[in-house]
Design a protein around this nucleic acid. Structure first.
Lengths: 141, 141
DNA sequence: TATTGTTATACTCTATAACTATA
DNA sequence: TATAGTTATAGAGTATAACAATA
């Protein structure tokens, strides 16, 4: 029998699991004044200092024109700064501010708590197996 | 250590796994002339005949105004028909046509093949465990 | 009055094209 | 000429508000 109901299809399960975690993440991050994508940007910036905003955008898989608006927002919130690259003044080096680092720390902890909450129905081992399985199917590029 | 890189976060893994399967699904469905959401609609219609289009929209979690455009497209493709409900002429009963049933059959097989392809890096048992884990975290409403 | 389907409209998100300043 | 950042604009996708038909 190839015919199965929608709600048992893998695509449905993945999409709804993703949406549910995104919702929980969003709620957990709200007190810290950022959303999920902003946290992703802060994580990339913290992991790769001294990179141009276009390089950071590339890591995040978002367009450089979209990156401009995101950084505008984060800069307005005082979480990042832009400064011209010393050797190539066309490039902007984007860095976290002190406040940015603190928000990143607290927001990451909140997101971690949301993940643990999300994984409650699973045993710790099953949670690890879920992450390992997702990593495996992603990397089979 | 709470700080981890973006690409090892559960949210990132779920989102990218979902996107990858959606891409493979889209490619597999293309020869059958429908996309993933249209397949979802056909599946719901096949599973719940004699329902109004608003009831079907509810099952899919999409707005009734959005449903109108989707059904317009599917009707134009000859896959579904609308007819007034006998007892309540405000309602539209939506049904699959013969062609609609055949497209659903073939498209479902193609989507099944895409899922198997997607799960290639995992053992059959691991694939089942992945689906079970996703179902568990979704249902813990 | 309330509900179903529909239409018109607005809003969000993102990408494309064109501009500037640097190289 | 080419590239980084920016801006203006357009497109996809979806939701909100208003309307006609029916209950």
């Amino acid at each position: 029998m190839s015919s199965e109901s929608l709600t048992s299809r893998l695509g449905y399960l993945l999409k709804h699991a993703q949406q549910r975690l995104a919702l929980m993440n969003s709620a957990a991050l709200k007190p810290h004044g950022i959303d999920g994508r902003e946290l992703a940007i802060l994580l990339v910036l913290a992991d790769h200092e001294q990179e141009s905003q276009q390089q950071a955008a590339g890591r995040l898989g978002i367009d450089r024109t979209t990156m401009v608006a995101f950084l505008d927002t984060l800069e307005r919130k005082g979480l990042v700064t832009r400064r011209a690259h010393a050797d190539d003044r066309r490039k902007n080096i984007v860095e976290l501010t002190e406040i940015g680092r603190e928000v990143l720390r607290n927001a990451t902890e909140a997101a971690d708590a949301a993940e643990r909450d999300f994984l409650t129905p699973l045993s710790p081992r099953q949670g690890e197996q879920l992450k390992a399985a997702l990593l495996a199917v992603i990397e089979s590029s």
